[in-house]
Structures are given as C-alpha cells and as structure tokens.
Amino acid sequence: MKYLMIALTSLFFISCDEEVSREDLLPDASGEHGKILLVIEEGLWETSLQQNLHDQLDQNCKGPYLRPEPLFDYYRTGSTEMSHIDKLARLILKIKIDHDSTYQETAVTVKENYFARGQLFVVIKDSDLNRLNDYIKNDFDFVLDAYNAFEAEQLTKEFKGDPHKAIDEISQDNFGISISLPRTSILKASSEDFMMVKYERSQKQQYQTSGTSGYTYETFWIQEGILFWKEPLDSASYFEPYHIMARRDSVLKQNVPGDMDGSYMATEYDPYYKPEADKIVVDGQETIVVRGLWKYAGNPGAFAGGPFVQYSMINEKTNEIITVCGYVYAPKFSKREYIRQVEAMLSTIEMVE
C-alpha cells in the first residue's frame, strides 16, 4: 500500500504541474524502421492470404537501388495474443476474420501510438475471406502508404528534435535554407558556394565461420553524406533536370575526391540505372528531385558507390539555384532505410525568411 500511495501521489503532482496525455505514459516503440510485425493466426495464414500479402510486401522499392530491395521487412507471430515485446513493435499489422460480425466491406483501422509511442498499428478485418483477399490484392496501397508516411514523419520529427545547430547556421548564411541534420554529423568542407557534411556510424555484419557452427563479426562504416551547392539562375532553362545534372557532375568532380589518385564522385548513367527526375513542392517551393546512383570515376581501381537523392530549388531572394544532395555508402547492407533517413533530412529544408 505504501508503494501504491507513492505512485499515486507522484502522478497527482505531475498532473498539477502539467497536463499528462495518454501518450506520455506509454513506453517507446522499439525495433527496426521499415520492419512490420504481422499478427495473423495460423489458420488464416495458411490460406491464399499468405501469398497475396507476400506479393504486396515483397514489391521492389521505388528508388535508386543497385539491387532490388523489398518495400518492407516483416515477421509473423501466429498467436492473436500479443506478448509484451510484440506490443512494443514499431509497425504492427493485424489481419483477422471476424466470425462474430457481418461486414458489408473490409474494415481498416489505423491507430498511432496504440501500445507504444512512435508506433503505427493497422488492423484489417472482415467476415468474408474472399473479400479480405480482394482488399489485400487490390487496395493494400493505402496501408503501404500509411506505413511509409508514418516512418518518414517519425524520422523527420527525430531530426528536427535534435538538430546540428552550427551546421544549420552555416546553411542559412551561405545557402539561404534551414535544414535539420543529426547532431552527431561532421562538417567536412565549407565555402561560400559548397558544403559537405557526413553522418557516420559503424555497424556489425555477422558471418558463419566456414566449416563450423560458429559466427564471426565484421565491422563496417555506414556513411550518409549531405552535399550543398548553389549557382546563379542566369536563365529559366537552368532550372531543368538536364542542366542541374550537368552542374552536379561538375561540382562533384571539383569538390568530392575519392580515396584513390585521380578518383572523384560521379553519377551512374548506365541506361538500366539512369537517374530519374520529378517535381514536388517542399516548403512551398517547386523542387526538382533526382534519384539515382553515384559512383567513383577517374581511376579504374576506384570501386564504390550507392544511392543518392537530390533536391534543387530556387532561392528567389538571391536568384540562385540551391541544390542539396544526400547520398549513402553502406557496403554489405540494405540501403532502403538509410535512404529513408536521407529523404527525411531533406524534407526538413525550409527557405529562410
């Protein structure tokens, strides 16, 4: 009783000082970004629904990937009773046949922060298996879009919550934009019209030892780089993908050398991997987005590369094209979640008033 009174008293004082929401009392979600926990009972999983769900989740990501990568990773629990650990998963998808009700159409419920903060819990249910399968086959994009949007929102919130203030100040002074990059990012180069920032950390890869049942671990460095450059908007034709890419190649050759003599960062233009451009709106600004692959050129012995995403927009105050390029170097690892992080960083760009 003594401990219960202490807990109740503490909650009372918290409530007096500030309003406490239900979310404030939840644990934080855990697990990897881009990984979905499937809660589907065994009997339902062994129907055609299993293949239909595989077909949706195993689709290739749209993006600049050297090798195909699935939209999401996923794993399943066969029990409808979720464990405490299950309830902390970042992304949860529960699919069930409801034998106790009669539905006119498949019901889909999207719940944020249900069991944990930073969690998206989607429930799909119906009383008719055929109609449920039709939804998975034909209308599941709604669920995929919800997960993708949620992951992007969570990462953006994370970067905005703890940004590198010094780098943001330089970005505002030299390029007229604000951007939220991780606080542990390192400024590698800075001038009036070019800046390079790197966000690096290590990750271990597990290998089975040849001829034994044991495992060994090897450590690799993961690098997410953010490059900034600008140029005068001397002609309206400059704000077109072909000119932006030509300028990109010139800037990279001059400013981003490789480790081997004569090597430098370049763009992969092989027809199978050629860059793709699109136009979107970021902070009210028309923005040209280019997705593609980077590589090293200038030395045949320089082997490295990876995906990049690049935003270009017009700073109307200075009449300049501002370009920010995020790239990933992560040998041995899937690139999908690193590109998701880079895109979240770029989404924080705002023009300075």
Rank of each mutant, 00 (worst) to 15 (best):
P275L: 03
Q205S: 15
L66V: 05
T156D: 06
A189Y: 08
L293D: 00
E169Q: 13
M245G: 03
G161W: 06
K2M: 11
D193A: 05
L71C: 00
Q208C: 02
I6C: 06
K35V: 15
D73V: 02
L132N: 04
Y272E: 12
L44A: 09
G31E: 05
F228Q: 04
M345P: 04
L57W: 01
N130P: 04
S237I: 09
V20L: 03
I339C: 05
A146R: 12
I95Q: 09
E42S: 06
S213D: 13
M351T: 08
G43A: 12
E192T: 11
G34R: 03
I167A: 09
Y207P: 02
L66I: 05
K160A: 14
E81L: 09
F142E: 14
S202E: 15
T216F: 13
F159P: 06
P271K: 08
D134C: 07
E41Y: 01
A7H: 12
F194Q: 00
G31W: 05
K160C: 10
I321G: 07
K335C: 01
I186C: 11
D86T: 01
F72G: 02
I6G: 00
L53D: 01
V328G: 03
Q310A: 05
Y272R: 12
I179T: 03
R340A: 12
R336V: 08
V282T: 07
Y147K: 09
V143L: 04
D261E: 15
P64K: 00
C325T: 13
G211H: 12
K335M: 02
V251C: 06
Y217G: 08
T212D: 09
Q206W: 08
G161N: 10
A89E: 12
Y242D: 12
Y103M: 08
D55Q: 05
